[in-house]
């Protein structure tokens, strides 16, 4: 952080480009991060072009092809590369469409949590006093519950489904962003450039969101990637417990919940594949997150 904000006051086009170049230099040094990024981009492409990539519709039922194994196992059929589920839906197609759900969940949850968290955090950190106390105590209350448990109860209130799950998870993630922003704002507030801007007559809104905030972004970005992957995990967990996206949606956690009855009967693919999809997605995002942290956090760069 210390390094980035020195330049920020005089941020011109060339210095921004230089910053980016420097960022990419550190980021690309981390091989895992680059692989993660590649996988992530691949996932985005899959999600966007799902209707063209997927061989079948996600809800199309082929009643003559129920519980077929993947192609490489005996009994598999060429039309269904990764096999079919209990009502004859193509698993590959469902997984491809499922990428849409997961990425969508990640984006929405992170955006809500980030925007809300930054807003509350900046206010708390800038004004301090009773505003700060109220906001931070409220965040303490949220943090006092285990996140998944709180999300579970919240989603039961809002109503099981994708929207409910996303709102609940975003709400539960809020405090992390609030705390981070608040701490960063409090640290930045006393710095010279802020004082200078204040003297120059900048209003509090401008000070808060235009002058201070851009310099607190690094930890927030790292936290955002972490939230992105956690949101996917938690949404899948809620789906697994029956409170997330509802069938026949091909959300991966929901698919797993549907597949639970097959763990003893030998149809391993119904159980294994959706979970693998979740793992790969989350892993890719976490790799990117690690890379981002290394590239953005100069203190860790040394190590």
């Amino acid at each position: 952080m210390a390094q980035t904000n020195i330049q920020s006051g005089t941020s011109t086009d060339s210095s921004l480009r230089r910053q980016l170049a420097e960022f990419w230099y550190y980021f690309s040094e981390n091989r895992g991060a680059v692989i993660g990024l590649a996988v992530f981009i691949l996932l985005i492409i899959t999600a966007i072009f799902a209707p063209w990539i997927a061989p079948h519709g996600p809800a199309d039922q082929y009643r003559d092809a129920v519980l077929l194994p993947p192609i490489f196992q005996e009994g598999g059929r060429a039309g269904y590369l990764l096999g079919t589920d209990a009502v004859g839906r193509d698993i590959l197609s469902r997984l491809i469409y499922g990428a849409r759900y997961s990425l969508f969940i990640g984006i929405v949850v992170t955006c809500i949590a980030l925007v809300g968290g930054i807003f509350l955090g900046v206010i708390a950190g800038y004004f301090r006093g009773w505003v700060d106390t109220v906001i931070m105590r409220l965040m303490d209350v949220i943090l006092a519950f285990p996140s998944l448990l709180l999300a579970l109860v919240l989603v039961a209130i809002i109503g099981p489904g994708l929207t409910g799950a996303m709102i609940s998870i975003a709400l539960v993630y809020q405090p992390h962003f609030v705390r981070l922003t608040r701490a960063a704002v409090m640290a930045e507030k006393t710095r010279d450039y802020v004082v200078a801007a204040k003297v120059a007559g900048a209003g509090p809104l401008r000070l808060m969101f235009k002058t201070i905030l851009p310099n607190c972004m690094a930890p927030l970005i790292v936290q955002a990637t972490l939230s992105f992957s956690n949101a996917i995990l938690d949404a899948a967990a809620l789906g697994f417990l029956g409170y997330g996206a509802q069938p026949p949606a091909s959300e991966w956690g929901t698919m797993l919940a549907d597949a639970r009855e097959f763990i003893a009967s030998g149809q391993w693919w119904v159980v294994t594949l959706p979970g693998l999809a979740i793992l790969i997605t989350v892993l890719a995002i976490n790799l990117v997150g690690d890379g981002l942290r290394d590239a953005l956090d100069p203190k860790l760069k040394r190590s």
Partner: peptide, 8 residues
């Protein structure tokens, strides 16, 4: 039982 297990 799960219907899918009955055959086994």
């Amino acid at each position: 039982p799960n219907p899918s297990d009955v055959a086994a």
